Amino acid sequence: MKNILAILILLMFNINCTDKMEKNQNKSLDRKVSQVPIEKQISYGLEINAPIPVTIYFDDIKISEKNTPLNTVVELNPFILKNGKHKVKIEVNPLFRSSETFVKPDNLKNIRIQFVSYIWNKETDNVSNYITNTNLQLTTVKESLPYFAQEWEVEVKDLPYDLEGWSKGQDLSKINHKDLEINVVAYYQKLRSLMNNGDFASYRNLWAVADQELMVFDYQTKDSYTKAVEENKLDFKKCKNAMIPLEDFEMRLHADGKMVSLERKTHTREFNAESPLDIKGWSPLIRKYKVSGGASYGVKLYLPQNSNEFVIIRK
Rank of each mutant, 00 (worst) to 15 (best):
I63V: 14
I63T: 04
E65K: 14
K66R: 14
L70C: 10
V73R: 11
V74C: 10
N77T: 02
F79K: 02
F79H: 12
V88Q: 07
I90G: 03
E91W: 10
V92W: 05
V92G: 01
R97K: 12
T101C: 07
P105S: 07
K109G: 02
R112V: 10
Y118Q: 06
Y118G: 00
Y118F: 15
I119T: 08
N121K: 07
K122M: 11
E123S: 15
N126I: 14
I131W: 04
I131M: 10
T134E: 12
Q137F: 10
L138A: 04
T140C: 12
V141Y: 04
E143I: 11
E143V: 13
S144W: 00
S144F: 00
L145D: 02
L145H: 00
L145M: 09
P146N: 00
E153N: 14
E153M: 09
V154P: 03
V156M: 08
D158C: 07
L159R: 01
Y161F: 15
S167C: 04
Q170E: 03
D171T: 02
L172S: 06
K174P: 11
K178Q: 14
D179P: 06
N183D: 12
A186I: 04
Y187P: 03
Y187F: 14
Y187A: 09
Y188H: 06
K190V: 01
R192L: 09
M195N: 02
N196T: 00
D199R: 00
F200G: 00
A201T: 13
